[in-house]
Each structure stands twice: as C-alpha cells, then as structure tokens.
C-alpha cells in the first residue's frame, strides 16, 4: 500500500483534529503570524484581539513563545501591555531594551495574567556564554589530566634515559 493512499484519511483526521486544537492562544498566535507573513498586518492585529480572552481562559500560567521580527512582536507587545495592566511596567522595560538594541529575531513570552518579556537575543547570548563557561571548565579539566599524563611520561623517559 503506497503512502499516497494514506494521505486522504490522514487529511480527514487532521481536519477533524485541527478545530479542536484551534481553541487556545497558540492557534491565535499562529494565525496572526501567518497573516503577518502575508503582509496583512491589520488582519494580524485583529486576530490578536482574541488573545486576551484565550489567555485568561486557557492554560493558566503557561508561557507562549512567538518568534518573528520586531514589527510583529511590537504588535503583540502593545496588546499584551494593555491586556495585562499589572505587568505593564516590566513589559515596557523589555520593549525599551529591544528598541535600543534594534535587534531582530527576538521572541515574546506572553503569560497568562503575567508578564510578557523580550527574551530571544538575550537568551541566545546567555546560552552562548554558558556553553563557553562549560567548554572552558571541561577543557581545563582535560588539560589538568593531560598535564599529569605528560609529567608521568616525562619521568618515565628520564628513568629510561638514565637506564640507557
């Protein structure tokens, strides 16, 4: 049986499952992101209007990550800031940081009743630095082992030389 034969029933299953999945905030963000990719910014903004309700009704406490360019994130920032008044201060600070750096490719974390934060580039830089520290520690450990090995080899060489 070829793979092609499986595709129609698979499509039906996906069609049935997709609306069920399209209940929460992720689907709204995905839809808005797709509209943004098509250049339909106003439509993307309207799609995001439903974000607040979705976030307050679904999956309390989860963090949703949206990755894209600055224009899209700023759209989300504004909405999130107005939706979650209590978090506006931390949110505004995050946005300022972003504007100052002018970095592209940032991500936004929008949390139910919580804060939205610019993470992306900063997190990547931190991860890079953490890997550097890890590599340095491991290298030094291996260097120490190699040094001990070298000294042992050298002392054996000296004994052999004396013997010869």
């Amino acid at each position: 049986m070829g793979v092609r034969r499986l595709l129609p029933p698979l499509a039906v299953i996906l069609a049935l499952v997709a609306p069920l999945r399209a209940q929460g905030a992720e689907s709204i963000l995905v839809e808005a992101q797709a509209l943004r990719r098509q250049g339909r910014m106003e439509a993307a903004s309207r799609a995001l209007d439903g974000l607040g309700e979705a976030l307050t009704e679904h999956q309390r406490g989860r963090v949703f990550l949206v990755r894209g360019n600055i224009a899209f994130e700023q759209l989300a920032y504004g909405l999130a800031a107005s939706l979650y008044e209590q978090s506006e201060a931390s949110f505004a600070r995050a946005r300022l940081t972003d504007e100052e750096s002018g970095a592209a490719g940032v991500s936004v974390a929008i949390e139910n009743r919580g804060r939205a934060r610019v993470e992306g580039d900063r997190r990547r830089a931190l991860a890079g630095r953490a890997r550097l520290v890890q590599a340095a520690a491991l290298s030094l450990f291996l260097l120490g082992l190699a040094s001990v090995g070298f000294m042992a080899w050298r002392s054996v060489e000296q004994v052999n030389r004396r013997g010869a």
């Binding site: 997190r123 520290v133 520690a137 030094l140 450990f141």
Partner: peptide
Amino acid sequence: VLPGDLRLIEAYPFVTWGSLLVAL
C-alpha cells in the same frame, strides 16, 4: 564568568559550570 544582568532563574548553568571552572 557571571554576566552582569543574569537573573536567578537563568543562573543554573553558570552556577554548575562556572563554579567548576573557578574551582579548577
């Protein structure tokens, strides 16, 4: 080793590997 703007919730790898590096 420690970034100046590191938050506590992000500190785990720096505590783990950074302290090893400094100890070494």
